[in-house]
Amino acid sequence: MAAGGDHGSPDSYRSPLASRYASPEMCFVFSDRYKFRTWRQLWLWLAEAEQTLGLPITDEQIQEMKSNLENIDFKMAAEEEKRLRHDVMAHVHTFGHCCPKAAGIIHLGATSCYVGDNTDLIILRNALDLLLPKLARVISRLADFAKERASLPTLGFTHFQPAQLTTVGKRCCLWIQDLCMDLQNLKRVRDDLRFRGVKGTTGTQASFLQLFEGDDHKVEQLDKMVTEKAGFKRAFIITGQTYTRKVDIEVLSVLASLGASVHKICTDIRLLANLKEMEEPFEKQQIGSSAMPYKRNPMRSERCCSLARHLMTLVMDPLQTASVQWFERTLDDSANRRICLAEAFLTADTILNTLQNISEGLVVYPKVIERRIRQELPFMATENIIMAMVKAGGSRQDCHEKIRVLSQQAASVVKQEGGDNDLIERIQVDAYFSPIHSQLDHLLDPSSFTGRASQQVQRFLEEEVYPLLKPYESVMKVKAELCL
């Protein structure tokens, strides 16, 4: 049975990233139509530049190519590739079939990587351009969430054990800070992308030097003109047959890092959902379990974690691919890159769409948070109580021993009897502590235990987050809708 299948058929496997999760716009960027249309555009740009620099290419040939950029006979191309065992030459023939007058000058002087690699770089750039505003929107939604809850005390956790208090907004800023680093890295790697350009079979530009009869300047002009037509500021000066596969490492490393950030955020949300302090959106008709109707599973956060793990592992592909590119190139890269580049971007696209949807509907339960604080705060307040007693004339050592005994009794009630923490009640009825009984409410005010959390939130948002989001103001209103 021949390899390949009808990918629109229910009898043929289709990647869930495309069929179930990723956005239509990201799927289109990695589609065959987008790819092969870009090949034709690159052939047109090459012909236009070659004509401008004096090669015998007519206006009629150029116009014929322009008129057929979208006229792609995919069936013919597939048949040609089956016959020739070469995808680029299959599309040269297919393009030439609908451009008979231009057929002889299509791909003039070029090698397969002229269309293959340059198209990949265009796709990487455009895919990054799709991700950047999506990530900015996630940051914006979380920034709104953090600002609104900047002063809401909550129990902090280290080692997932109760620690000092923080605020809900401050905790959210930990998430935002990681995503801001990801946004900066995505922008950097996007701006650092260079075009492969017009380089020939081993990167020496020998074929173009021959076409222009040894004119170095025209060869350099050709490279520059096509690079500018493709919208790049610069091209690699040095290439082998391909652009260095280190570029793929750079791009997928940034995406993998984004995956790590999203995994951490969504894990926190899942843990908070278990504590009943916070939940992701839950639709009115949504079913959490087929057997347990009360369940409210954090399905979206779980999906993000599941896909983020996949995204983090994909960076190993370009690392290994770059390491086995012998001399000017081997074909070890080809099949692998067809999979890992598309999957990385479709996965990143999915987790950003999902995280935006989550961040637009996060639900906080202040009463649950308050109750958990009441359970733990008495123990945390013991040092403040000791200091207040010393100020009232008591002995630190005597007070410490009193607190120690009462704390152990209260802990026994919590752990052995399943009761509430009654340390404060014990202190309130103990005559030894009568000098500070009137101060206990103040000493137990949760806001006095959150330090500068709310001020940190305000400063972080104003100095770091809002300036970073400013270039994306025009796209901030787009909502994230999930079908599944």
Rank of each mutant, 00 (worst) to 15 (best):
A2H: 15
A3H: 13
A3P: 05
G5C: 09
D6C: 06
G8R: 15
G8W: 15
S9K: 14
R14G: 15
A22E: 07
S23W: 07
S23G: 11
R33H: 06
Y34S: 12
R37C: 10
W39Y: 15
W39G: 07
Q41D: 09
Q41E: 11
W43H: 13
W45N: 15
T52C: 13
L53A: 10
G54D: 10
L55Q: 14
D59R: 09
E60K: 11
E60N: 10
I62G: 02
E70Q: 10
I72S: 07
K75G: 10
K75F: 09
M76H: 10
M76R: 13
A78L: 07
A78R: 11
E81Y: 03
K82N: 12
K82P: 14
K82D: 14
L84Q: 14
V88C: 08
A90M: 04
F95T: 08
G96E: 11
H97Q: 12
H97L: 13
H97K: 13
P100M: 09
A103F: 07
I106M: 07
T111R: 03
Y114D: 05
V115E: 06
N118F: 01
D120C: 06
L121N: 11
A127E: 05
L128C: 09
L131I: 08
L131V: 10
A136R: 12
R137I: 13
R137V: 15
A143W: 00
F145L: 05
F145T: 11
A146H: 03
E148T: 09
L155E: 01
G156M: 01
T158Y: 00
F160Q: 00
Q161W: 00
P162G: 04
P162V: 06
T167H: 05
C173V: 06
L174K: 05
Q177A: 10
Q177V: 12
D178T: 06
D178C: 06
L179K: 01
Q184C: 08
L186T: 12
V189K: 11
V189I: 10
D191G: 06
D191Q: 08
D192V: 08
L193W: 05
R194Y: 11
F195I: 14
R196W: 02
G197L: 00
G200W: 01
T201R: 00
T204M: 05
T204Q: 14
S207R: 01
F208E: 02
L211F: 07
F212I: 11
E213V: 14
D215H: 10
D216W: 09
H217F: 15
V219I: 07
V219L: 14
L222W: 01
L222C: 11
D223V: 02
K229S: 13
F236L: 10
I237N: 08
G240A: 12
Q241G: 01
Q241I: 00
T242N: 15
T242V: 13
Y243F: 15
R245V: 01
D248I: 03
D248E: 10
L252Y: 05
L255H: 10
A256G: 11
L258W: 14
L258E: 03
A260I: 00
A260W: 04
H263I: 05
K264L: 04
K264W: 02
C266N: 07
C266E: 05
C266S: 09
T267S: 11
D268N: 13
L271T: 05
A273N: 10
M278T: 06
M278Q: 04
F282V: 06
E283Q: 15
Q286V: 01
I287D: 02
I287K: 01
S290P: 00
M292L: 04
P293F: 02
P293M: 04
R296T: 11
P298R: 01
M299N: 08
S301M: 13
R303H: 01
C305A: 09
C305Q: 04
A308G: 11
T313H: 07
L314T: 10
D317E: 05
D317Q: 08
Q320E: 04
A322M: 12
S323Y: 03
V324P: 00
W326F: 15
T330K: 02
R337E: 00
R338W: 01
L341V: 12
L341S: 13
E343D: 14
A348N: 05
A348H: 03
A348D: 03
T350D: 14
T354C: 13
T354D: 05
I358H: 03
S359R: 14
E360Y: 06
V364P: 08
P366G: 05
P366K: 08
E370I: 13
Q375S: 06
P378Q: 03
P378E: 04
P378W: 01
F379K: 03
T382N: 05
E383W: 03
I385C: 09
A388R: 04
M389N: 10
V390G: 07
V390T: 07
G393V: 06
D398L: 13
C399A: 14
K402P: 04
V405F: 14
L406C: 09
A410R: 04
A411N: 07
A411S: 08
S412D: 09
V413P: 03
V413M: 14
V414E: 01
Q416S: 11
E417K: 10
D420L: 05
N421K: 04
I424N: 08
E425I: 07
R426D: 09
R426I: 04
Q428V: 08
S434K: 13
I436H: 03
S438Y: 11
H442T: 14
L443N: 04
S448N: 15
S448R: 14
F449V: 05
R452S: 13
A453F: 05
A453I: 03
V457G: 03
R459A: 12
E463F: 13
E464P: 05
L468A: 15
Y472G: 09
S474Y: 15
V475N: 15
K479L: 15
